[in-house]
């Protein structure tokens, strides 16, 4: 099986600081992958490059089957191509209802004219209800997203990502600031999501990663330090030195 996303030899520098240094990474369809690394290891920059927010100085990012380059495409074009991204802090549209947030994210034509003429059909409403059920917000559909608790906002954002039906989901620190019960639910959501699509989880928290039970990539100073099962990487000498040992 060929890779869904292949990042090879990517370097990015900001004012001389090398955020990514010849980074190579690939992920297959329906794979769950955790990316860990200390602060400044390049985790967020890696996501920025894949989603089109940052242009790399060199390297290739190819996507799909047959592989096409994602470099030079706009963020929205990449999102439409099937890459969804969840930010570290929950970013939902706080002034709008949960239903409106989900409706906006549903996989539909994104052009201004088709959106202007869009009227929700009953299957769209059903899909929104179904998603709300998945993320446990069925009773909150008409509430404004800004009123939700921190954990609920994170789930709403995950729900919006599921609504986009991406083939690859990039998730930045989903468990930050969550209670233990909320973390467990988040783990379940992510594992369920990985049944039908590829998911990359960037995480700080080793326990959370352990619970995800998947292949782990360790980043350090902008490149891959180690890759393998959680037990494999936690036994790796250099990983212990730069990350776990601190």
């Amino acid at each position: 099986m060929s890779a869904l996303l292949e990042v090879s030899g990517v370097s990015v520098s900001f004012d001389g600081f090398k955020a990514l240094n010849n980074l190579s990474f690939s992920i297959n369809e329906r794979e769950l992958r955790a990316v860990i690394g200390p602060n400044g290891a390049g985790k967020t920059t890696f996501m920025d490059v894949v989603t089109g927010k940052t242009r790399p100085d060199q390297g290739r990012v190819s996507w799909g089957e047959p592989p096409v380059s994602l470099l030079g495409r706009s963020e929205s074009a990449i999102a439409v191509a099937g890459i969804g991204r969840k930010f570290q802090r929950p970013t939902v549209f706080e002034d709008q209802s949960v239903a409106d947030n989900l409706m906006m994210a549903l996989k539909k034509p994104r052009g201004p004219l088709s959106v202007l003429l869009f009227r929700p059909a009953s299957e769209d409403l059903d899909r929104v209800a179904e998603l709300a059920d998945t993320i446990g917000l069925s009773t909150q559909l008409s509430r404004k997203a800004g009123e939700l608790s921190h954990g609920q906002k994170q789930w709403l954002e995950i729900g919006m990502l599921l609504a986009q039906e991406p083939r690859l989901l990039l998730v930045d620190e989903p468990a930050a600031g969550m209670t233990t019960a909320e973390r467990e639910k988040t783990t379940d959501l992510l594992r369920a999501a990985a049944q039908s699509r590829a998911v990359v989880v960037v995480e700080h928290d080793m326990d959370f990663v352990r619970r995800l039970d998947c292949r782990v990539t360790v980043l350090h100073e902008g490149s891959v330090l180690a890759e393998g099962s959680i037990d494999h990487v936690t036994r790796n000498e250099s990983v212990i030195e730069v990350y776990l040992g601190r």
């Binding site: 989603t51 929205s76 409106d100």
Partner: peptide, 21 residues
């Protein structure tokens, strides 16, 4: 359409990552 406009007002980057130009 109004949802998208208000989304752009409050958080333009997020709207972009939803795939809206």
């Amino acid at each position: 359409f109004g949802s998208v406009l208000r989304g752009i007002r409050d958080d333009e980057a997020r709207v972009r990552f939803l795939g809206y130009p």
